[in-house]
């Protein structure tokens, strides 16, 4: 199950251990893993910089109060954990355009940026609609 990429672990092993991390989250903080609410809270915090009164009157920001909570720290932790793993295993690589994208659409950075941005906006709208 070893891949040609030497420092990777089997997805079954890494996935299984991540299941234990889920159990750890429930035991220590009574939390189930999630990430999308963090984007709502952060959007709210940014909007608060410009018009705090408007944000405090909006239904969705009354439901999801813009603050830093367990999940917000969890999402920051994902970044740190991936960075640690990548740097210590020499698999960190600056890349502006993914390989599979480049094969099909080329190395044009603005093109990738535009589609990724639109994709992100659509994905988050859908995730929030589904309450996921």
């Amino acid at each position: 199950m070893k891949s040609k990429d030497g420092s990777s672990w089997s997805p079954y092993l890494a996935g299984g251990l991540s299941g234990l991390v889920s159990i750890f989250a429930v035991l220590t903080a009574d939390k189930f893993l999630g990430a999308s609410t963090t984007f709502v809270k952060t959007a709210g915090m940014i909007e608060q910089l410009f018009s705090p009164e408007r944000v405090s009157a909006m239904d969705y920001f009354i439901k999801e109060v813009p603050n830093i909570d367990w999940q917000w720290m969890f999402v920051v932790g994902i970044f740190i954990g991936a960075l640690l793993s990548a740097v210590t295993s020499k698999s960190f690589q600056w890349k502006a355009v993914p390989d599979m994208w480049a094969d099909r659409f080329g190395l044009n950075v603005p093109k990738r940026a535009f589609v990724a941005f639109i994709g992100g906006a659509i994905a988050m709208f859908g995730a929030r609609l589904a309450d996921g």
């Binding site: 891949s3 990429d5 420092s7 990777s8 672990w9 089997s10 997805p11 092993l13 890494a14 996935g15 251990l17 991540s18 991390v21 750890f24 989250a25 220590t28 903080a29 939390k31 893993l33 830093i68 909570d69 367990w70 999940q71 917000w72 720290m73 969890f74 999402v75 920051v76 932790g77 994902i78 970044f79 740190i80 954990g81 991936a82 960075l83 640690l84 793993s85 990548a86 295993s89 698999s91 993914p98 390989d99 599979m100 994208w101």
Partner: peptide, 23 residues
């Protein structure tokens, strides 16, 4: 908050090891 950060670090580490982060 600290538990959230620790949980995230462990989870992010495993996501990277499992190579599931990439496009």
């Amino acid at each position: 908050l600290i538990y959230g950060l620790i949980t995230g670090i462990m989870f992010g580490f495993l996501l990277q090891k499992g190579r599931v982060l990439r496009y």
